[in-house]
Amino acid sequence: MSVDKATVARIASLARIHMEDAELERMVPELNGILEWVEQLGEVDVTGIEPMAAVIPNSLRLRDDVVDADPRTGGGRRADVLANAPVAEHGFFGVPKVIE
């Protein structure tokens, strides 16, 4: 499978990265080179093999349902959450107006 400029444009748009025409054109051969190379994986016989689900065989630990048990992962820290916001007003993050 290889990508053309329109495909790269669609992918860039899905990834929300604005790209000018020249950049899209430059990306086409680069991405195709990488894709062509990774497609050698198709050679591998994977009959009966399950995709890896956990790097080190393990299952999920569960957390107790306690509010703010650890301040590092709890709420009640609005100032910290908003501290780096490009726009914050009245305790909210501000973004360009959205029309739903």
Binding site: M1, V8, I11, L14, A15, L35, V38, L41, V44
Partner: peptide, 23 residues
């Protein structure tokens, strides 16, 4: 990001991502 977006996108997921996780 573009490579990653592409290999996960509709229609390509199994051929790329699932195959890679099997490998």
């Amino acid at each position: 990001i573009l490579i990653g977006t592409y290999v996960l996108s509709a229609g390509f997921y199994d051929a790329y991502y699932t195959q890679a996780q099997k490998v």
